[in-house]
Structure formats: C-alpha cells, structure tokens
Amino acid sequence: MTTMPSTETGLRPVPEAQPAREAPADATRGGERASLLQRFAIGIFIVVPFAALVAAVPVAWGWGIGWHEIAIATVMYFLTCHGVTVGYHRLFTHSSFRPKRPLRIALAVAGSLAVEGPIVRWVADHRKHHKFSDREGDPHSPWRYGETVPALLRGLWWAHMGWLFDEEQTPQAQYAPDLVKDRAIHWISRQFFAFTLVSLLLPPLVGGLWSWSWQGAVTAFFWGSLVRIALLHHVTWSINSICHAVGSRPFRSRDRSGNVWWLAILSCGESWHNLHHADPTSARHGVLRGQIDSSARLIRWFEQLGLATDVRWPTQDRLAMKRREPGSKAGRPSAA
C-alpha cells in the first residue's frame, strides 16, 4: 500500500519495479551506472554551449548578428526541436502515431542532432518519469526534496539539470526494450557521438559555404551550433522543472504538471504539459483555443502526406473526461 508523501522528500514512496532480465552487453552505453567520463562529457556539453548562450547578448550588441546566422540557427533549432518533440517524445516514447520506416529513421536522426542524449537512453528516462511522475522514483521531479521554498529551489535545480549527473541510470532493457530490439534505432542510439559532431559541424559548414568565408563559418558555429544547442537544452529541461512547478492545470493528472504558455513556441508545443500528463499518448498537447502546438501540426502534415497513420488525436469526449471539475484545485500527486 502506498504511503502519504513524506514531509522530508515531498514524494510518494512506490514499490520498485520488478527487475528485468540482465541486458545484453551492448544494450546500454556504459552500463547501468554512468561512468565518471560520461558525466564529465555531459558537463562539457552543458557548460560550453551555456557559456556561448550567456555571451550571445554582448556578442550581438558588439558585433551584431547577420541574416545568415539567424537563418541557420533558426532552421537548426526547429529541426532538432521537432526531432525531440515529434520523434523522441511523441513517437518513440508514447507511440502517438505510426510512421513509415523512412520517417521513423529520419525522426530518430533529427532528435539525435539535438544533443540531448542517445535515443534509447532518452526514452527510457522519460518512460520512467511518467511511471513515477512527481513521486519517489521520478528521475527529475522538482518536488524531490519537499515543498518548502528552499526545498523547491533545490528541487528545481535537480529537475532542470542536476539529475543529468546522477550516477544511477534508468535500465534501458527494462524501460525501452522495444528500442533495444530495433536494430536501426539501437544503432542510431549508439552513434550519438557521431551525430553530436554532425550537429556541431553542419552549421559552420553551411555558413562558410554560404558566405564563402572563414568568418561566416565561425559565426555560424557560434550561433547555429553552440547558442542553438544551449537554448534548446534549457527549453527542454524547463519542461521537467518549470512545467512541474507552476502553470495552469485544466485537466486531471496524477502529478503537478502544468501549462506554461510562454514556453509554447520555443518548446514546439511541449509546454502544454498538463494535458500531456493527463493523456500521455495524445498526439496533440495544445488542445484548447489559442494553444500553439507546432509538433501536432507537423504530425498532421505527415498524416496528410501518408507518412503517418494511426494518429492518436484527442476527441472531445475524451477531453471532457479529463477535464478538472470547475473550482477544484490540483492536489498532491496520487498513487499509481
């Protein structure tokens, strides 16, 4: 029987999931515990782009930013953002639609270019998050340390990026066995470092050829690689932290997921997080009037082109069932 939330942790203890059979040697990258080298690499890929993001304002003020850099950074941002939201998240994690094989591969590659981790690792972590959302076992709940202001500030840091350095890793064979068995997707997952290099080098290649200068390559690398990666990282992590701490909650969910409107465009529709946790397999997250969800629009286009079938669009009856009663308030996360 599940106990009430601890005043010390703020999270509900839940029974541990049954351990899966031992995974093949190549089922994970580095085993079930992150090595010191892996955590060091994560730190490098967080600190360096973030430093560029911080420097972006004075660089733009002092030297300006050209249309080439704006175009390259914008295209790369939304290409990789949708690779994560449509590919990693709505397709591979939640099976919100069934794509043709070429589209499936393309979305896996586009998501890998976001430099948010190998696809199998990302999906395993996110499925575990949904299983234990805002309860004990959630990899990145902002309520991890309790509900006081100091505890929540500490939890927000953990949910945003601290959890990335946790030595303990989600068992991929247990939470993403379908992707471990998919040879093509598993291969893409294991080539994450190669896709990271492509993501870093493609913008300066385009910028250099477009301007036919080394300066064009350097500025494209700064804006289209470093700043773009850092911005997308922090927008994605904000879904874990901000969208589980604040926001409107028009739908009933078992956790504290909320809708944060000002993140909607940059997150490609992911910040309509309350409906997502109320109905995780829905292909559309922004279901109310005025809620922009570019990921759902892209899935609709794939469907119209015959590239996607069995799309799980929300129906009015289903949304009515998920609606929170007028005047009711979102409470503590309930037991699974």
Rank of each mutant, 00 (worst) to 15 (best):
G31K: 08
G31P: 00
G31N: 07
R33G: 05
R33W: 09
R33H: 13
R33D: 10
R33C: 03
R33L: 11
R33N: 12
A34F: 01
A34C: 00
A34V: 04
A34D: 01
A34T: 00
A34R: 09
S35I: 03
S35E: 05
S35T: 14
S35Y: 00
S35F: 07
L36D: 14
L36I: 11
L36V: 14
L37Y: 11
L37A: 15
L37D: 13
Q38L: 12
Q38T: 11
Q38C: 03
Q38W: 11
R39Y: 10
R39I: 13
R39G: 08
R39W: 14
R39L: 11
F40N: 00
F40G: 07
F40V: 08
F40S: 05
F40C: 05
A41V: 13
A41H: 04
A41W: 10
A41S: 12
A41T: 08
A41L: 14
A41M: 13
A41N: 12
A41R: 11
I42H: 07
I42M: 14
I42Q: 10
G43D: 05
G43A: 08
I44Y: 06
I44D: 01
I44A: 08
I44V: 15
F45Y: 10
F45R: 04
F45N: 06
I46P: 02
I46S: 03
I46Y: 15
I46M: 15
I46W: 14
V47I: 15
V47A: 14
V47E: 01
V47S: 04
V47N: 02
V48N: 00
V48W: 04
V48C: 02
V48P: 01
V48M: 00
P49V: 06
P49K: 01
P49Y: 01
P49S: 03
F50G: 01
F50L: 15
F50P: 03
A51I: 15
A52L: 05
A52T: 08
A52Q: 05
L53V: 10
L53T: 02
L53G: 11
L53K: 08
L53M: 15
L53H: 10
V54A: 11
V54G: 03
V54H: 06
V54W: 06
V54M: 11
A55Q: 02
A56K: 03
A56G: 04
A56R: 05
A56W: 04
A56Q: 06
V57R: 09
V57Y: 10
V57L: 15
V57F: 12
P58L: 10
P58R: 13
P58T: 06
P58I: 09
P58F: 04
V59H: 00
V59L: 04
V59T: 03
A60I: 12
A60E: 04
A60H: 05
A60D: 01
A60C: 07
W61Q: 13
W61F: 07
W61M: 15
W61P: 00
W61C: 04
G62Y: 10
G62W: 12
